[in-house]
Design a protein around this nucleic acid. Structure first.
Lengths: 197, 197
DNA sequence: CATCCGTACGAACGTTCGTGCGGATGCTAG
DNA sequence: CTAGCATCCGCACGAACGTTCGTACGGATG
């Protein structure tokens, strides 16, 4: 059983190549879009062949879906996970919003919030990729809504809508104009939207 | 002078073909993006040859710039022009915001607000197209800010930021989820942001 | 030792991309 | 009637696209 414990560092598949591909794919897609993400470009960036890279996914759509999944993981790790052990309520709602803006300020992705870019890119293009993105946005909005409800907000759906919109506006304004003032504006708006501590 | 008045429907160039091309280009780009907009697809949609279409612009970038300009004209015609003769102030600010949401509700572009899609697509891609889009967004935000100042708002820049963000959030939510409720939410948010009549 | 599997390669596939060239058509001016 | 001009087409190009081959190496398994 010693062997049974040590002989599986990874489930069935390759260890680091696929992860390296997707790490680069996420960055590329955040600036050029998920459709602008190209297999040849990705391969030459990583110094490997198109076919070798392609074999990991089987189709471009699968590559896009995997890229979306990795971006979601990164978002969760950056925004949600650090607060997972706190109790729901007003305090964590504030912390969540602060982490949300902080994640944008920190420029986790070189092209700004990946989810925002991908959502806008695919919002009028039906298919599995759009569905995956829609589910992620819905999950995040649902989390904000739940947190608002736990904090005793009267209309959590409305609150989640506004918080999400403001953050997205800050992201766009920062990407387009390079003004960090946008983050300050978002925090000002949040302050008026959130219940007092 | 009768001739002087009648012999110029258009300055130097062709009359309606170019306009027809751009009308279709705007619709296509609003769903597939300005980069996803392709000359071959555009030509076959209009029943003309790639080269014949191409001759009107000389490069894809020029086509994109012309498309952005036409989209801007349409936005102005739909939102700004109808209120141009009213006096600045609280009443027109309310009307402007109402027209803004109405323009989104009316689905003027099949893929949602063209400016929002184009801005997100190009916000991390330097070049003339990005610059043109940036200028347009800045102009619209400036108009909102000026109107807020005329209405006596204390921080017009903050107001313009929030109005713009909320409308963009409504656009995204409608495109992604198909919920018309997003427009209602935007109006609710506007009501709290705008000064009382 | 033979066998198999996962991983990666180079080459080529058919298609589409953006871009040019040369010629046909049709209107308008002289 | 002819010359000129703008518009549009057919055709072709080189490059890049996503995708599919056949192959080869290395490590595990029998």
């Amino acid at each position: 059983m010693a062997t049974a414990l040590k002989d599986r560092p990874k489930p069935p598949a390759g260890p680091s190549t696929r992860e390296a591909i997707l790490a680069r794919a996420v960055d590329l897609a955040s600036t050029d879009g998920l459709e602008g993400l190209t297999i040849g470009r990705l391969a030459s960036d990583l110094g490997m062949s198109k076919s070798g890279l392609f074999g990991h996914f089987g189709s471009k759509e699968e590559l896009q879906l995997a890229t979306v999944a990795v971006a979601a993981e990164r978002f969760i790790a950056e925004v949600i996970a650090p607060l997972a052990d706190r109790d729901p309520g007003v305090a964590r709602l504030h912390a969540l919003c602060d982490a949300y803006i902080g994640y944008l300020e920190r420029e986790v992705f070189p092209g700004g919030c990946f989810l925002a870019a991908a959502a806008t890119e695919f919002d009028a293009r039906p298919g599995p990729v759009r569905d995956a993105i829609r589910d992620l946005v819905a999950a995040w909005r649902g989390a904000l809504e739940r947190e608002g409800r736990a904090a005793g907000v009267e209309d959590p759906g409305q609150l989640a809508f506004e918080l999400h919109a403001i953050a997205q506006g800050a992201n766009l304004n920062f990407q387009l104009f390079g003004e960090r003032k946008a983050f300050r504006r978002a925090r000002v708006a949040f302050e008026r939207l959130l219940p007092k501590a």
